[in-house]
Each structure stands twice: as C-alpha cells, then as structure tokens.
C-alpha cells in the first residue's frame, strides 16, 4: 500500500474533521447549557453557509478587496441576531417541558429551516464564484494539501482559541460554564439563564456558519452540506455529549475515519462507504461506551 496516499488521507481527514469538530462544539454548547438535543444543527449550517455565499457574491460584485473574510465576518454578526431570535421564539417557551417535546421542536425547526433555505436559495447547487481558494495545492513532504482544507483548519483553530479565552476569562463565558454545571446555583447568583441559553444558540449558529461556509467553498453548496454537518452526531457521541474538547477530538476522529474508510474500503464496497462509516462507528461505539470518551456521568443530588 502506498504510504504517502495513506498519510494524505489522514491529513485530509484531520483538516475536514476540524470543521466537524467546530460545528460539534456549537452543538455541545447548547446541550451543556440548556440540555437541548439539537437535531437542526445541519440546517443552521445551511443557513449560515448560504448567507455567507450571498454576501460573498455581493461583495465580489462591488469589488471588495477581502470578500470572503468580510462575508464571514458579516455572517457572524447575522448569527447573533439569528441565534438570539431562534432561542427566544422557538425554545424559550419550552424551558422546563419534557425532553421529548424539546427534541421534537428541533425536528420541527429542521424542516422549517430547510424549507426556508429552499424557498430563498432554491435547491440547485450554488458555488462560491470566483472560487475563494485557488486550486494550486501545497505539497508538504510529498503529501498534497488543498488550500481550502488548510484554511478550514486555521479557521477552526482560531475559533477554538477565541472560544476558549471567552469561556475562561469573560464573565459571560464563566456564567455559561456555571450554568452548564449547576443551573440552580447559577440562578442563585442572579445569572440570567435566558442570556446563557441565547448565547449558546448564538455560538452554535456561528460555528455552524463558519463550518458551512468552508464546506461550501470546497464542494459547492446544496442540501448535502446540511447532511455533512449532521456528522456532529457521531462526533459528539464519541466525545461524550457534554465535553467541548471531546467534541473537537470527536470531529477530527470522524473526519479521519471518513477519509480512511473511503481510501481503504471504497475499492471493495464501491459507493457510499464514506457516508456510512461514521454512523456504523457511532452505533458500535454506543454499544461499548455509552458516555463517550470524556462525558460526565452526573452525580445525582438529592
């Protein structure tokens, strides 16, 4: 077997996986802070990605010097509004309702958002035109690395660092961590749980939008980008639903798994091995380690 090709598959896997890890971070945040299992994460990705593409196209038209970076930035600003509204309109009322009700709400949101995306942007594949990243790849140690992959990883890494600093050093970040740990105790200090829930949805929208924009810049943008970002589910199952580092590692592992299975198994099972492998892995993993690698098992208090 060609070792260079194997390394190439792993390197690509790590880089794509860092995007999954970024989206998974947003997902875990909602789950940690508010206990909501959000099944509409793929749709948040679509909305963010399409919005970014629209702004990008517009900026190109007016000849803006930094179209992609500026489009991303404006999209992030829009995420603040969209995350806040989604939480306030659709989820705030369900606080304290049974878990299943809340999950069904996110399933509803999934279809509503998907419908909206279809309505606004139609279902044809759209591409970032002109391409955001040039196609001439780097060659590092004999491995070919596409620019879009490299920049995806850079974006994911930067956001991880920003969020880390936010959680560690700002009063808002600490309030979010506190609420995730013990909501009643956080309330007793006058922390606004509404603020925390909204912030979690805002950050989830942001990670999804950035992830979606890079996935779209690579393959073009259609509904399948939403399905790709559903890979957060195997990623967070692997990392343990409520661990942020777990989500990041889980995302990377899923990315590598995808590339490797495509590389190693496609010759024998032509077709969708790449799409199926993460879910097969998730099922097997759940059988043996239901709390994931880093999940907390809560100490019940009486």
């Amino acid at each position: 077997m060609d070792l260079t090709l194997l390394l190439w598959a792993v390197a690509n896997g790590v880089m794509v996986g860092s995007i999954y890890g970024l989206i998974a971070l947003g997902w875990v945040l909602i789950y940690k802070c508010s206990g909501v299992l959000n099944l509409a994460m793929g749709e948040l990705t679509l909305i963010g990605a399409y919005l970014c593409l629209t702004i990008y196209t517009f900026l190109i038209k007016i000849g803006h010097p930094l179209p992609f970076a500026s489009a991303l930035f404006l999209t992030l600003l829009a995420c603040i509004v969209m995350g806040y509204l989604t939480e306030r309109i659709f989820l705030d009322r369900l606080i304290g309702e049974p878990v299943l009700t809340v999950i069904m709400m996110t399933v509803g949101l999934m279809f509503v958002f998907r419908g909206l995306v279809g309505l606004i942007w139609s279902t044809d594949t759209r591409i970032f035109d002109p391409p955001v990243f040039s196609y001439d790849a780097f060659i590092v140690g004999g491995i070919i690395i596409e620019r879009v992959y490299l920049w995806s990883m850079v974006a994911a890494l930067s956001l991880w660092i920003i969020f880390y600093l936010f959680f560690k050093y700002t009063p808002w970040g600490l309030s979010m961590q506190a609420t995730a740990d013990d909501e009643m105790a956080a309330l007793s200090l006058g922390i606004s749980v509404r603020f925390v829930y909204s912030a979690a949805w805002i950050i989830a929208f942001m990670t999804a939008a950035v992830g979606g924009a890079f996935l779209g810049a690579k393959n073009g943008l259609n509904i399948s980008v939403g399905e790709l970002s559903l890979l957060v589910l195997p990623a967070v199952v692997l990392g343990g639903l409520n661990s942020v580092p777990g989500a990041i590692v889980g995302g990377i592992v899923i990315g590598v798994l995808q590339e490797l299975s495509g590389f190693l198994l496609d010759p024998y099972f032509p077709g969708g091995v790449k799409d199926t492998a993460p879910y097969v892995f998730m099922v097997l993993f759940l059988l043996f380690k239901p709390y994931g690698l880093w999940g907390w098992v809560r100490i019940e208090r009486v």
Partner: peptide, 10 residues
C-alpha cells in the same frame, strides 16, 4: 442553597 453546590468543573 443547601448542599454546597459548587460548580464542580470550575
């Protein structure tokens, strides 16, 4: 609140 409810992971 009762029961020494620290934020365990902080």
């Amino acid at each position: 609140i009762e029961g020494r409810r620290v934020f365990e992971h902080l």
